[in-house]
């Protein structure tokens, strides 16, 4: 896997940079050319809060090879206060405690070591708040 693939994703994946559509004001994450809500093409930068709430979640027992050592782990759809949704792992928790409405903080973490060459992949994981 070539490393430029990761450089491109640094703003969204490592800094949680999103964009706000100038015509409909929806926050879109990650950024894209055309607004999925109103087809607008003018954007302002927006940064996502480091907090959110679980929309739906699962506990993954059979994992892809790169995640095998982490199973079982919680994977969840998280909504931030800006209305953006992200799929993230929820960590540092009892998996059974996670469900719709669980309040979380988003923390910068190592996601995995990819493939045989072990490229370190970083990003955000969710951790239950409080």
């Amino acid at each position: 896997m070539p490393s430029p693939r990761y450089w491109r994703a640094i703003p969204s994946r490592l800094r949680l940079e999103a964009v706000r559509c100038r015509s409909c004001e929806n926050v879109v994450y990650p950024s894209r050319r055309i607004c999925p809500h109103c087809h607008g093409t003018e954007w302002d930068p927006a940064e996502l809060s480091r907090t959110g709430e679980v929309v739906t979640s699962t506990i993954v027992h059979i994992a892809p090879d790169d995640f095998a050592m982490e199973a079982p782990y919680v994977l969840a759809l998280i909504e931030t206060p800006e209305g953006a949704r992200l799929m993230l792992q929820v960590t540092d928790c009892d998996p059974e405690d996670i469900g719709p409405g669980t309040a979380v903080n988003l923390e910068f973490r190592r996601i995995r070591a990819e493939g045989n060459s072990g490229i370190l992949c970083y990003g955000f994981k969710a951790v239950p708040a409080g």
Binding site: I62, A63, I111
Partner: peptide, 14 residues
């Protein structure tokens, strides 16, 4: 982030 197909349908199921 570690999604598999069963995981996606599990999210739908929940």
């Amino acid at each position: 982030h570690g999604a598999t197909f069963p995981a996606l349908y599990a999210l739908i199921a929940r």
